[in-house]
Design a protein around this nucleic acid. Structure first.
Length: 476
DNA sequence: TTGGGG
C-alpha cells in the first residue's frame, strides 16, 4: 500500500458526534456513543430481524438518537449487558424520520462492536462483522467512559410511577430484577420489585364457580420452586413481566437478578385480580446504575418502610394510629394484639411447616358458597377461603372449632352468610345478594396456622387454616 | 426490503 493511499484513508475516517447527525442525512457515518435504551428483537415484514437502540453522547443526551438494526437472525442483534455500555458503529446510514434523525444498520455494509462502559480495555464483548479499532476510536471510547462517570440520565420520578401507583395501560417502571425463568417452554417471565405494593383489584369471578374454576393463586401455570421463592423479598409486590414476542437466550442475559432497570413503555394489565406486565414490541429497557437517584430514592423508601412496625402490612391498610383503625380492620377481631403483622410471602417462605401468623389480607374467594353447605353433614364447619395480600395468594381452610370462633358459634345460615359476605366485600341489597357485580373485599386482620396433613411428607402436605379470628357483628 | 416516535 502506498504512503499516499494510507494517508488518504486515515484522513477519510471520521467519527460523527450525535449533534452533527442532521448534517449527514443520506450519508454513511461512523459513530461511537453510549447505549441509553434498547428494545428486544422483533421480526419484520422483510427478511431480517430488527431491533432499536437509543444512543447518547456528551453532545446529545436529552433525547439521543435511535439506530435501527436489520440483521437476518435475532442472535446477531446487539444485546446490551450493562448501563453505560458503549457501541461502535461503522458505515451506518443516517436518515430523517421527521422530526428526528436516525441511523440505520444494514447487515451487508455496516458493522458494530459493544464495549463495557466501566472498563478500561478495548475488547468488545459482542460484535457484527469485524470492526477495526483505530487509535482515535480508543480515545473516543475513553472520553465517553470519563464523561459517564459523572453523568446521570435525567429521569423524572413522575415519569416512573411506583408499583403502588400503577393503572392498566402503558407506563414506564423502575424496578429491581429479582428472577427470570421459564415456567413453560418458550414462555419467559421476569420478576420485578420496587418495594411498594400494587393496588388491590376488584374481583369479578363468580363465587358459584369457585369450586369448579377456582381463582388462581398465581399467574404462572407452575408455581416457583420453593428454593427460589425463599430468596425473594417478603415485603412489596413482585410484578410478573411476560414477553409479547418470543425471546432468545442471549437477550435474556440483560435481565440480571439484583440489577435495577427502567422499563420504558411497558403494558400493565390485570388477570383474575392479579397485576402483570407485558414487554411489547414497543417496550424498551434501560439499564440503571444502582447509584441513580431514582433507585436510591426507591431503596430509601423501602428501607424506611421495613423499619416501621406496620412495614409488612399492605400499604393501603396501614392505620394512621392505633385509635384510628381503618373501618375494615374492625371487621375482625384477632386474639393476638401484640403480634406483628406479616405478609403472605412471610407465611409461604417460613422455614418451618408448623407455625402461626397474623396477616392483613383480603378474602377474594370462598367455597362452598351456598349457606346450607357451610357445614359437613355432621354439623361442623368446613370451607376454603382464598386469601390475598400484595405479596401472594393462599388457600386457607375454616374447620370445626375455628369456624365456631370465626362465625361466633352456629348463628344460622343467614347470619353466617352475611358475615362471610362482609369478608368477601359482596354487596347486599335488602338481604338479596348481588352476585354478578365485581366485589371489592376489605383488608381484614386474620390469624393463620400452617400445618401438615401427612407426617412423611410435611412440606408436600402443608396446609393453612384460619384460627383465633372472629367476625365482629355488623353495626347495623 | 424491513421500522422508527408520539
Amino acid at each position: 500500500m502506498s504512503g499516499r493511499l494510507r494517508n488518504s484513508n486515515m484522513n477519510d475516517y471520521k467519527l460523527l458526534q450525535l449533534q452533527d447527525a442532521h448534517s449527514c442525512i443520506n450519508q454513511r457515518a461512523n459513530i461511537i456513543a453510549v447505549v441509553l435504551e434498547f428494545g428486544l428483537p422483533k421480526t419484520t415484514k422483510g427478511t431480517d430481524c430488527c431491533c432499536t437502540l437509543r444512543l447518547i453522547d456528551e453532545t446529545h443526551h436529552q433525547t439521543g438518537m435511535s439506530v435501527n438494526f436489520f440483521i437476518e437472525n435475532a442472535e446477531s442483534l446487539p444485546y446490551v449487558a450493562a448501563a453505560g455500555d458503549i457501541i461502535q458503529l461503522s458505515n451506518v446510514t443516517l436518515r430523517t424520520h421527521i422530526p428526528e434523525v436516525n441511523a440505520v444498520f444494514y447487515k451487508n455494509t455496516s458493522s458494530f462492536a459493544l464495549y463495557r462502559g466501566n472498563d478500561d480495555d478495548f475488547v468488545p464483548y459482542q460484535g457484527y462483522s469485524k470492526v477495526f479499532i483505530r487509535h482515535e476510536d480508543k480515545i473516543r471510547i475513553s472520553s465517553l467512559r470519563k464523561w459517564l462517570v459523572n453523568f446521570q440520565i435525567p429521569a423524572d420520578s413522575s415519569d416512573f410511577p411506583m408499583l403502588r401507583e400503577i393503572k392498566e395501560g402503558h407506563f414506564n417502571l423502575a424496578g429491581k430484577i429479582l428472577h427470570c425463568w421459564e415456567p413453560l417452554k418458550d414462555n419467559w417471565s421476569v420478576y420485578v420489585w420496587d418495594g411498594t405494593d400494587t393496588p388491590p383489584n376488584a374481583i369479578t369471578s363468580m363465587l358459584e364457580d369457585e369450586i369448579n374454576h377456582p381463582l388462581p393463586l398465581q399467574l404462572e401455570s407452575v408455581p416457583l420452586p420453593r428454593d427460589v421463592l425463599c430468596t425473594l423479598p417478603t415485603v412489596g409486590s413482585i410484578l410478573r413481566v411476560a414477553f409479547e414476542l418470543p425471546i432468545e437466550k442471549n437477550h435474556l442475559n440483560v435481565f440480571k437478578s439484583g440489577k435495577w432497570v427502567q422499563f420504558i413503555n411497558i403494558r400493565l394489565k390485570v388477570y383474575a385480580g392479579l397485576w402483570y406486565g407485558v414487554f411489547t414490541s414497543h417496550s424498551k429497557l434501560r439499564h440503571t446504575p444502582n447509584e441513580n437517584h431514582l433507585i436510591t430514592e426507591r431503596q430509601r423508601l423501602y428501607d424506611d418502610r421495613i423499619l416501621l412496625k406496620s412495614g409488612n402490612m399492605p400499604i393501603g391498610s396501614i392505620p394512621q394510629s392505633i385509635d384510628n383503625l381503618p373501618e375494615s380492620l374492625r371487621i375482625t377481631e384477632v386474639n393476638h394484639d401484640r403480634v406483628r403483622h406479616l405478609t403472605l410471602m412471610d407465611v409461604l417462605t417460613h422455614s418451618e411447616v408448623t407455625a402461626k401468623f397474623k396477616c392483613v389480607v383480603r378474602v377474594v374467594a370462598a367455597t362452598p358458597y351456598q349457606a346450607e353447605k357451610f357445614c359437613t353433614p355432621a354439623g361442623k364447619y368446613r370451607m376454603r377461603l382464598t386469601l390475598e395480600d400484595p405479596t401472594a395468594r393462599i388457600h386457607a381452610f375454616v374447620v370445626d372449632e375455628d369456624g365456631e370462633t370465626l362465625f361466633d358459634g352456629y348463628p344460622g345460615s343467614l347470619y353466617v352468610k352475611r358475615k362471610l359476605n362482609r369478608l368477601l366485600g359482596v354487596t347486599e341489597c335488602d338481604s338479596i345478594v348481588v352476585n354478578d357485580r365485581p366485589r371489592n373485599p376489605p383488608w381484614v386482620s386474620v390469624c393463620i396456622k400452617s400445618y401438615y396433613v401427612i407426617k412423611t411428607d410435611v412440606w408436600g402436605s402443608r396446609n393453612f387454616r384460619i384460627f383465633d379470628t372472629k367476625i365482629v357483628d355488623s353495626p347495623n
